[in-house]
């Protein structure tokens, strides 16, 4: 079949591909990034499988989707960062480069190549105190489309999940959040994303979805999920000594934010 000769079939093939990919990613565990007074917090819930990763001194990565696809993207980002860091300097390693010239094109090429499996993943990257600002996030979709955000960013299983998660952050002064408040808002956002990801049918009408979302008991969603899943959280912390700003948060540090969501 010559795809270029048959525009309708081509459009149909792309739509099928999107549908397939989105079905694969939808049930995954969302990831959340939010700035706080000490830097950037990345948070997700998982069944003890690592989902948050260090890319470079001030850059972290998180993804939703097929674990091996996320792994390939993670490795590509790390390779690129270290090659630039060595051949130029640490200051030349920027998240913008990694996304514009690395992950974005790689994911786009994977999506366009119809004879190969695409990347079944959406990723979120965060950069602390880079050339673009104190807290910068990029999200890269499975088709290579990327978006830049400041102060917070999310990736859920589908675009509608991102929208509902984003509502949690409205009217929030992210730079002034304490770590506990940042973890609290991240957990709530995660729960909204989870809720959308597990819906049978996500309504096409956003207003309708928002109305349904208003009726969701976030505490309840989290209490249920925390019975099977564990919180994974890392920070890019400004106060860390040395060049390396990436650090795992331990259970005690996340406990205050978690306390209210634990089942009684």
């Amino acid at each position: 079949m010559m795809l270029s000769d048959e525009p309708y079939r081509w459009a149909e093939a792309v739509a099928n591909r999107r549908e397939y990919i989105e079905d694969q990613i939808r049930p995954g565990s969302p990831v959340v990034g939010v700035g706080y007074e000490g830097g950037i917090l990345l948070l997700t819930l998982s069944q003890s499988q690592q989902k948050l990763f260090e890319v470079y001194d001030r850059i972290g990565l998180a993804g939703i989707g097929h674990s091996t696809d996320i792994e390939k993207l993670r490795q590509a980002a790390i390779d690129m960062a270290h090659a630039i860091g060595f051949n130029y300097s640490e200051d030349d390693v920027t998240l913008r480069q990694i996304v514009y010239f690395g992950l974005g094109p790689a994911m786009k090429a994977g999506f366009d190549d119809v004879v190969r499996s695409p990347f079944l993943a959406r990723v979120l990257l965060a950069e602390l105190d880079g050339q673009e600002g104190a807290q910068v996030f990029y999200t890269v979709d499975y088709d290579g489309a990327f978006h830049r955000r400041e102060t917070w960013a999310v990736v859920g299983g589908v675009a509608e999940a991102d929208l509902m998660m984003g509502r949690v952050f409205s009217e929030l002064d992210a730079e002034a959040l304490s770590l506990t408040d940042a973890a609290d808002v991240a957990l709530r956002a995660w729960a909204m994303g989870r809720w959308v990801g597990t819906m049978e049918d996500v309504p096409d009408d956003v207003a309708e979805l928002e109305e349904m979302a208003d009726g969701v008991d976030v505490d309840d969603v989290l209490k249920t999920e925390l019975q099977n899943l564990e919180v994974e959280a890392v920070v890019l912390g400004r106060s860390l000594v040395g060049k390396n700003k990436y650090r795992n948060l331990d259970a005690e540090e996340i406990a205050p934010a978690l306390a209210r969501f634990k089942a009684d």
């Binding site: 690592q50 990763f53 260090e54 890319v55 470079y56 490795q75 790390i78 390779d79 270290h82 860091g85 060595f86 390396n244």
Partner: peptide, 16 residues
């Protein structure tokens, strides 16, 4: 020294 510094970090990040 520069190669080693990067090699140690690279190994740690890449292989977890």
């Amino acid at each position: 020294a520069r190669i080693l510094e990067h090699a140690f970090q690279y190994y740690r990040r890449r292989l977890l």
